[in-house]
Write a protein that binds this DNA or RNA. Sequence first.
DNA 1: CATCCTGTTTTTACCGACAAAATGCGCAGG
DNA 2: CCTGCGCATTTTGTCGGTAAAAACAGGATG
Lengths: 245, 245
Amino acid sequence: MTAPPSLAGSPDTQATAAYRRLRAEILDGRLAPGQRLKVQDLAALCGAGPSPVREALAQLAAEGLARRIEQRGFRVADADPAGLAGLVRSRCLVEAAALREAIARGDAAWEDAVAAAERRLARLPRSLDPTRYVTNPAWEAAHRGFHQALLAACAAPPLLAFCERLRDEAERYRAQANAVAWPGRDVAAEHAAIAEAALDRDADRAAALLAEHLNATGEFVRRALERRAATPAARRRPTARLAAE
Amino acid sequence: MTAPPSLAGSPDTQATAAYRRLRAEILDGRLAPGQRLKVQDLAALCGAGPSPVREALAQLAAEGLARRIEQRGFRVADADPAGLAGLVRSRCLVEAAALREAIARGDAAWEDAVAAAERRLARLPRSLDPTRYVTNPAWEAAHRGFHQALLAACAAPPLLAFCERLRDEAERYRAQANAVAWPGRDVAAEHAAIAEAALDRDADRAAALLAEHLNATGEFVRRALERRAATPAARRRPTARLAAE
DNA sequence: CATCCTGTTTTTACCGACAAAATGCGCAGG
DNA sequence: CCTGCGCATTTTGTCGGTAAAAACAGGATG
């Protein structure tokens, strides 16, 4: 029971700490798409030297969250409509395939987990404030958990990891969109319908509903992105300095 | 005219050079699965300092070709039967889905490209030596080109990139297997059948043939892996020693 | 008026050195 | 003969400083 050197948790090395931090900032849009990532600035931000930061950036670039330009540093990956379209199409195809597989292979435990995740998600409010959108971390976690539970019975770890990665990237787009508007859609009903079809073992219906769900979110984000592009970049407010190169 | 510093091509930074090199060595098995990756050794190998090497390793770890163990360095990713099974399953699901999409969206140019790639591949010998297996780089390139051409009409870049990554990992397993045996299968016929079904726009048949093709390769590799586990001088200790150093 | 050159300033990419942690080894004790 | 503990050695992860490449700004030029 003595706690000699390091017992619990993560003694998190500087490199992974920087990785986590930068990843989070990119995902929620605090580091805007296209923005330049100067090593020294980030090093100062993370309170670390340049080496761990470069390591983190290399990792992020490999995951597609950043772009490396040889001899010219790193930038946050862009989030343009073309990228969104490819992302949504990928998600529809891949998640539908994974869901079909999960439905084919899922056992009783999988059914229970799906049902439980659905109920847990349904109980939580999407936004912390009923009148306008305020991110609810608990809902986000439950949402992720639901989609994960749906596919969990699919015995193909690389595929599931890929789904996770695409979900991450989608979150980045959503963060852009939520700055502008939020959906009036009844997402809870969509989730319930997907869960029901999956538990009925109706692969075609479940896959179609899931694809529709993803497409609807994509369409919403596309509109928001469009509207955002139309608005002249917040008429030179100092706050825009973050986004400016 | 004045013979400037770097004239053509890539002035390849040390980090990317190391990345390419290590990646190649992992893919063709010269760095064996599970092997420890000591930074200093690799740095000496690449003629570079530790920082670029760590950067390359972080990238490889993000791609799944290496594992990072916090505070304990990097190792080459394992290549055990379980990993192979998940990989094959993932490839079947993902490539089938991508192929369906490509068949649905492909135009005449796509058809031509597929047909051309198939003919190019059919013309090349699988092995440089007819009596035993000797890797033929031209065939490898054409093979990759064929599978790529098949899916090219699928408008989902992230998905295609993922297929590439899985193909890379599969190559790693194949390198293990080819050290033991080589398939008597008529792979050329399989490729021809897939191309024909795709050009007939018969998505179901094409997807089924492709999945079968991938499964057959997977099964071949699995057998080879099994045989390999039995033969080497790993009598006293369970398989652990193979991974050690 | 746009364009090109040129010197200055940032920024990248890299190395070598250093502390903390892990690994392996020898040795006492059961 | 095996088991557990402390010490020397390796290895990791990190920093600060440095050459070289890119970005920038200003002035001369067609």
